[in-house]
């Protein structure tokens, strides 16, 4: 894919992510029998936040919030230009670790809880993405995501178990129930506001945008399972997203240890099994 396309993709990602987030709120409202906010509600929120006074608790916090957004954009760039998938995973990890460090860089118990949980979310979800990189290599002989487009058959065919594992960590990455541990959209089950407790104004807006980009990234990863023809992949990603919204609404938040155990037991196990099965 061309450079211009990637730049356009990076600029479009926040809008797409915002719309998806708005869709999520609308569907969630309808599932709960409410009318719900307009689809573009997330944009109202973020623009408003930019207009609010920004306070900060610690200069390093500001630095890490910018790092969160920047490295998220970097991860998206690497993904859209179909670069090395492992490098993409590392960039994504950098972004998430920046968020955790932003939470840590203040002496607030609430954001510390959020940060500790954010680390555990990284711990739970990263292995599956690395396994996906290995699956990519086994399928195409290279870690470059571009190899998938030359493959001739969808990745899903040979790696259904890894797909299942990716669906599992999708919940973690989107911070949806039952795994919305570090920062939940649902006030009723959040300890104040998790990792974003001490963000305000512009910084909260930046972290929100970064989260939208993350949403696009994770759906793009789902898309990679069926790139040819491309519309099947997009349908796959959208279906996965809708399923996540439903799951979000029918589950309550579960315990952190349960998340790690599930992600490492099932996610790790299924992925490894799939890779061993493929190589043997």
């Amino acid at each position: 894919m061309s450079f211009a396309f990637s730049v356009a993709g990076i600029l479009a990602a926040p809008f797409l992510g915002g719309l998806l987030a708005g869709l999520d709120r609308k569907i969630t409202a309808r599932l709960q029998g409410r009318k719900g906010p307009p689809i573009i509600q997330p944009f109202y929120d973020v623009i408003k936040l930019f207009g609010k006074e920004s306070t900060y608790t610690n200069r390093h916090q500001v630095f890490y919030i910018y790092a969160y957004l920047l490295w998220m954009a970097m991860a998206l760039l690497l993904l859209l230009t179909l670069q090395d998938f492992l490098v993409f995973v590392f960039a994504l990890t950098f972004a998430e670790i920046s968020l955790a460090l932003a939470g840590f860089s203040t002496r607030s118990p609430y954001s510390h809880i959020g940060s500790n949980r954010e680390i555990l979310q990284i711990l739970a979800s990263e292995p599956v993405l690395v396994f996906l990189a290995f699956a990519l290599y086994l399928a195409s002989g290279s870690f470059m995501a571009g190899g998938l487009f030359l493959l001739g058959e969808p990745l899903l065919r040979n790696f259904p178990l890894i797909f299942a594992a990716v669906l599992l960590i999708l919940t973690i990455k989107m911070r949806k129930s039952p795994f919305d541990l570090s920062s939940s959209a649902h006030a009723h089950q959040e300890i104040v506001r998790g990792v974003t407790t001490e963000f305000s104004g512009r910084y909260l807006a930046l972290s929100e945008i970064a989260h939208w980009v993350e949403l696009v990234i994770i759906l793009f990863v789902v898309f990679l399972f069926w790139v040819d023809p491309w519309w099947v992949g997009i349908l796959l990603a959208l279906a996965a997203y809708l399923a996540e919204i439903v799951i979000d609404n029918i589950f309550a938040r579960l315990k952190i240890s349960w998340m790690v155990a599930t992600a490492w037991g099932w996610g790790f196990g299924l992925s490894l099994l799939n890779i061993l099965y493929f190589t043997m």
Partner: peptide, 21 residues
């Protein structure tokens, strides 16, 4: 490699934690 990321973040996080202002 995932666990590595975890303990380093914890480590750095402790040192970053300071009171506002």
């Amino acid at each position: 490699s995932t666990l590595t990321a975890m303990f380093w973040t914890k480590y750095l996080g402790r040192m970053l934690s300071s009171l506002p202002g």
